[in-house]
Design a protein around this nucleic acid. Sequence first.
DNA 1: TACATCGGTGTAAACGCTTACACCGCGCCA
DNA 2: TGGCGCGGTGTAAGCGTTTACACCGATGTA
Lengths: 345, 345
Amino acid sequence: MSASIKEVALKAGVSIATVSRVLNDKGPVAVETRQRILTAIEQLRYVPHGAARSLITNQTDTIGVLLPDLYGEFFSEVIRGIDLAARRSGLHVLISGFHSDRAEIEAVLRALRGRVDGLIVLSPDVDAQSLRRNLPETLPVVLLNTPVEGEPVAGDGAAFDAINLDNHGGAFAMVRHLAGLGHRRIAFLRGPEENADARERLRGYRDALLSLGIAGEEALELGGDFSEESGYRAGQRLLALEPRPAAVFAANDSMAIGCLFALREAGVQVPGDFALAGFDDIPIARYITPPLSSVHVPIAELGTRAMERLLHAVDSKNGHERRQETVATTLVVRGSCGGAATDLD
Amino acid sequence: MSASIKEVALKAGVSIATVSRVLNDKGPVAVETRQRILTAIEQLRYVPHGAARSLITNQTDTIGVLLPDLYGEFFSEVIRGIDLAARRSGLHVLISGFHSDRAEIEAVLRALRGRVDGLIVLSPDVDAQSLRRNLPETLPVVLLNTPVEGEPVAGDGAAFDAINLDNHGGAFAMVRHLAGLGHRRIAFLRGPEENADARERLRGYRDALLSLGIAGEEALELGGDFSEESGYRAGQRLLALEPRPAAVFAANDSMAIGCLFALREAGVQVPGDFALAGFDDIPIARYITPPLSSVHVPIAELGTRAMERLLHAVDSKNGHERRQETVATTLVVRGSCGGAATDLD
DNA sequence: TACATCGGTGTAAACGCTTACACCGCGCCA
DNA sequence: TGGCGCGGTGTAAGCGTTTACACCGATGTA
């Protein structure tokens, strides 16, 4: 194993306390002594032992990230944002995927004790109850794009910090954009009922219609589950609708793409006969033909914000007030909806 | 803070040694005593403190992953593969991005002491020298898709384990496939000179031509830097070539896509007038029109293999022989090269 | 009966660090 | 001159574990 503080002390002819003092820049040390220690450290290539340090200081300089699935763009972007913020603060990032298996997540959660100073949890499913029960109450946690069950109790702080996406606002804006293009009958491809993002987007769609004085039609809300496949099927149903709408807004890009295939198959022109828009602005969106209009989600920023929030909680242990933040989305107008590009892109 | 082993011992009316024994299933403990301890643990919601454990056992149950850039599909897939393997073995994953800044990577490297049992390093740039100098010699390291400088010395083990992609084989196979379609003049879009993947792919291209008895033409090897942009420019140069080749193989998909744009712009039909193929099989590949033929890279497997190799090194501390492994690539034939789909897809 | 064996348990050292506290010598002020 | 304050340093306790070792009683064996 590598050198310990004791060997450094020996080599520099001082006590370990003094070495520790120069290591942490704490307490007075004679310049000359400090120099001697510094060179000893250099020569021995000494690096303090993280675990030992953690043991006594009770902090690990590490934050944990819990993710349900380490798959795809969303995940990697979030991590990137988190890592960015972490590095700025000299922290390490411990990531851990889990399958939705309740037992597994509990196991992971407990395994984290003494390993992390805080936790970012990203999960549409994990219920906060199970979180709290398996974690020291003092562990700062921020929920990322995870629905908080129960009403936010005014006055009393929430159980967790939370960073969420402005799904509602994004959907709202897109629908209004579509309407601005002259469409009155705008269909909507819904996501899975149990998905919070999907619910919010639906709400945004409805509210936008409301705000426009357009009566919602139940028939125009087609079911879907975020999969390309379900978008394809919805596309077919769309074409059978009577009278046929001339605009569709899908709750995510995958469904929009599936829908596009269905329309194209039927010989319907996009955006000529049909305006199409999605949500998420996945990378593929700009590559398909026609390029897909979408609502851009700043995923990395989601991660960064979560990290910053967590940092605040960790630093100001006591006086940290829990709250929920929302990250804005932006409209990205491309060819698929037939509208002119706005200055948003 | 949460309960310690001492409190558990107290509650169960035994010594901490006994508690530790049931915790680790080591040494004999009376069934009845064990039960008493187990319930005490349950009630106190006790979880052993990772750092304390690490301190004495000198192992952290954590492996570190060093990445140059946490961006895009490649990264996220690698991580997924790593996490998968890690979870199977009950290990944690500490990830750390770094910018190529030499000082920074050294800082990160040292910060890792006492935090990880092993390291996976993914970097086209990091030179192994700097690695070894900043790490305890005993720390197992596996290089992932990272060129090892210097010849592998026969007999004497290499300095590191390494997992690499079969770039050569993939390129070789693709060129032969193109040739099998009847093409004799196959152009190649090269990647950046300093990139090892790019070099190997070029080598595969040349060797394939050689094996086919086709004379290589220098003019058919166009420069590029892996960017879509450079592919676009290469596409334009391609069209000016006299006589014009009818097939291009790009060293990566991004360039292939850029090239496709250039061709399309010039009114050239793909695959009608021009067969096109890429390398990497990025997700977008199947979505563009026409779907891009490519060489599929099993990225997640790269991660898994690296992890397994590392695990082996960690477990068999002494008797671990370092070696380099290669992960196979597979041909994915889609529409862009005009060939029939093979059973490989 | 005496002694080795073995299951079951406790004691205490050690891991590498931080930090409260004590200590020493010095200069300064009253 | 005696005391105080202070820069500079060492001593040792303690963080939460694991584990070598010692101990004790019961059982088996000669």
